[in-house]
């Protein structure tokens, strides 16, 4: 058969459009790269400069002489307790509030006002939350500046994130699943427990990840409500793992880093970057654990 002319040859206009499309693709790619480069630079600098400081000794010894000598054990375990406490407060309140707002609350003005308030609260700077914590828990309720007050302040700060991400995760579960449940005689709560929650758990966990990362990294709220730059802590035996009381002040990584980077003269550079690197690795570890869990949970979800 004779070679036919091509009825589907690209026209001149199509070739021009294809060129534009290619240019746009490169623009988007460049933006993507521009986003990644600063992040890689920051991580690179911290890893290169902080790596020499890392050792078992550095992780497990308590800081001495304002952090110039010794390690970071006290602040590290302080951040751990702070984050866990914060999660213990914010996760139940935030998740339950999210469930209420998405599943039970009638769509009226009050609900919408609450949602707007929640969204706006998420945008409030952390120093404002810090002052709120100081005013509400310390000045008004006469509590000590302490681990518990700092955790509560962080919980107040992260509550909007928890509520919003829970609500979005629940809203992503298709409506017809709910209708099928109701139709079979299930109550609202049965529907939520057996169908809605299992299918939105990965989204809720995303909220938890965000909360943990923020709670571990924030300085301002804890600086005003209970964290101190340095203090003496028990260094012997099992007491090493429980150095703080709920109603007393404590050390935390973010606060520690803030003070050794700024306030202590003659601080070796590797100590600063070492602390930064540990804080980074801590958050990275929590996040990847949560991501792994989320991927596992999502694999079971198919619709």
């Amino acid at each position: 058969m004779r070679e036919m002319s091509n009825p589907f040859a690209p026209t001149a206009y199509e070739r021009r459009k294809a060129r534009t499309a290619r240019v746009m693709e490169y623009v988007f790619l460049a933006m993507g790269i521009a986003l990644i480069i600063p992040m890689l630079l920051i991580i690179g600098v911290i890893v290169v400069k902080g790596w020499p400081a890392l050792s078992w000794e550095y992780l497990t010894a308590n800081p001495m002489r304002g952090g110039a000598v010794g390690g970071i054990w006290g602040p590290l375990i302080g951040t751990f307790y702070l984050t866990v406490l914060c999660l213990l407060i914010v996760a139940p309140v935030g998740i339950l509030a999210g469930i209420y707002l998405n599943e039970y609350a009638p769509d009226n003005r009050l609900t919408r006002a609450i949602m707007i308030a929640v969204t706006s609260l998420a945008g409030v700077p952390s120093i404002v939350h810090a002052l709120f914590g100081l005013g509400a828990f310390v000045a008004a309720m006469h509590l000590n500046k302490s681990l518990l007050v700092a955790a509560a302040t962080l919980a107040v700060m992260t509550l909007p994130v928890m509520i919003t991400s829970t609500r979005e995760a629940l809203a992503a579960v298709p409506r017809n699943f709910r209708e099928a449940c109701w139709n079979l005689g299930a109550t609202r709560w049965q529907t939520i427990r057996t169908i809605v929650l299992p299918n939105s758990i990965s989204g809720i966990l995303t909220g938890v990840i965000l909360v943990v990362a923020r709670a571990a990294g924030e300085t301002a709220p804890i600086m005003l409500t209970g964290a101190v730059a340095s203090m003496w802590v028990e260094d012997e035996g099992w007491a090493k793992f429980t150095p703080y009381r709920l109603d007393e002040q404590f050390m935390a990584m973010a606060m520690h880093l803030n003070s050794i980077a700024r306030d202590v003269p003659g601080m070796p550079e590797s100590m600063k970057f070492g602390s930064a690197l540990v804080l980074l690795l801590l958050i990275l570890t929590i996040n990847s654990a949560a991501v792994a869990l989320r991927l596992y949970l999502r694999r079971r979800k198919r619709w």
Binding site: P7, F8, P10, E14
Partner: peptide
């Protein structure tokens, strides 16, 4: 083959194909 041309050929523009 549509209009005498194998539409899976390299030189077929999908935009033109989908127009037809």
């Amino acid at each position: 083959t549509i209009l005498g041309k194998n539409i899976l050929d390299e030189d077929v523009s999908v935009a033109s194909l989908r127009k037809r």
